[in-house]
Amino acid sequence: MTQQLGKFIVIEGLEGAGKSSAINLVKNIISQHTGQDPVCTREPGGTPLAEKMRDLVKIADESDPLCDEAECLLFYAARAQLITNVIKPAMSAGQWVLGDRHNLSSLAYQGGGRGLMPLVKAISDATLKGFKPDLTLYLDIDPTLGLQRASARGALDRIEQQHIAFFERARATFLEFAAQDDSIIVIDASQNIEKVHQDIVKQLTNVWAVERIN
Rank of each mutant, 00 (worst) to 15 (best):
A93Q: 15
A93R: 14
G94E: 09
G94A: 09
Q95N: 14
Q95A: 11
W96T: 03
V97N: 09
V97H: 08
V97D: 10
G99W: 08
G99Q: 09
D100G: 07
H102S: 07
N103Y: 10
N103M: 09
L104K: 05
L104F: 11
S105H: 04
S106M: 05
S106F: 07
L107Q: 13
L107R: 14
L107S: 12
L107K: 14
A108L: 09
A108K: 12
A108P: 06
Y109L: 02
Y109R: 06
Q110S: 04
G111E: 05
G111A: 04
G111I: 01
G112V: 02
G112A: 04
G112N: 07
R114D: 08
R114I: 00
G115E: 02
G115M: 02
M117R: 09
M117V: 01
P118C: 06
P118V: 05
L119M: 14
L119N: 04
L119W: 00
V120T: 06
V120K: 10
K121T: 10
K121Y: 00
A122E: 13
A122R: 14
I123F: 01
I123A: 05
I123Q: 03
I123E: 04
S124R: 10
S124G: 15
D125S: 13
D125K: 14
D125R: 13
A126N: 12
T127L: 13
L128C: 13
L128F: 12
K129N: 14
K129R: 13
K129H: 14
G130Y: 10
G130N: 09
G130H: 11
F131H: 12
K132A: 15
K132E: 13
K132I: 00
K132R: 15
K132T: 09
P133K: 12
P133I: 08
D134Y: 06
D134W: 05
D134K: 09
